Simulated assay, not measured.
Amino acid sequence: MTQTILYARVSTAEQTISHQKTQAEAAGYKIDQVVSDDGVSGFTTKLADRPEGRRLFDLLRSGDTLLVRWVDRLGRNYQDVTDTIRLLMRKGVIIRTVINNMTFDGATTDPMQEAVRDALIAFMAATAQAQAEATKEAQRAGISAAKRDERKYLGRKPSYSQGTLSLVTDLLSQGSGTSEVARSAGLSRQAVLRIKADPAAAQEVLSRWSN
């Protein structure tokens, strides 16, 4: 008896397995079983290396249908996705996507139809990888911007360390002059004067940069 297995993969908090199942059922698919991997990257982890991905390969038999929201659920690496789909087709498994309602199987023996099918698989797999790379680049840009904003919030990086600050405050408390303290600590007179004027503020700035 053949079955339809939905494979769902989620890698972020915004995605859910239940949503992928609901979306498939709303499209008219009758699902016999759901296999899912939660918190797994499709970019760095091959389907065969995922905990439930391995089980999926064991469950699928000739004539079964593997249902996915889109090919990016199988993976976001071009080579892995194309290899996986071709392997499953050779096994006699039908692969269907909820989005675009695409069907891939090994039923056809016509060379032209095979060429069109394989070209479409390649295009979809390449698109999945390109989208993943674009997302990662946007994330990197966002992190860099956040770091720049954080540095603006922190203000100018202090020219002294915790040890230097302690030395300055100790010398000042002993009545040492500004120039003498500056020479001993290796700081400018202006830096020493700022610390002298508000030692608590100097400590706060240093603490922010140390976190």
Rank of each mutant, 00 (worst) to 15 (best):
V93K: 01
R151C: 05
I99F: 02
A27N: 06
V68F: 05
G163F: 03
T103L: 04
A128L: 06
T84N: 02
I121Y: 08
T44S: 11
T135N: 13
S207R: 07
P51L: 03
F43D: 12
Y7S: 01
V205G: 04
R73N: 04
L6Q: 01
D80E: 15
A132S: 09
D170C: 00
G28S: 13
R117M: 14
S41V: 08
R156K: 12
R90L: 09
L206W: 14
S176N: 14
I143H: 12
L74F: 13
T2Y: 05
R183I: 05
E25A: 03
G75S: 10
S36H: 13
G106E: 12
L87I: 01
E204N: 05
E25W: 04
T84G: 02
D110M: 00
G28R: 15
A132Y: 02
I143S: 07
G186C: 11
G106R: 11
D58W: 03
A115V: 03
E133D: 12
Y160N: 08
L172G: 13
A122P: 12
S161V: 10
S210Q: 15
A13K: 15
T109H: 14
R9G: 07
T44Q: 08
K196L: 01
Y29I: 08
A201I: 02
A201V: 04
Y160V: 05
I5A: 05
P51F: 01
A141M: 11
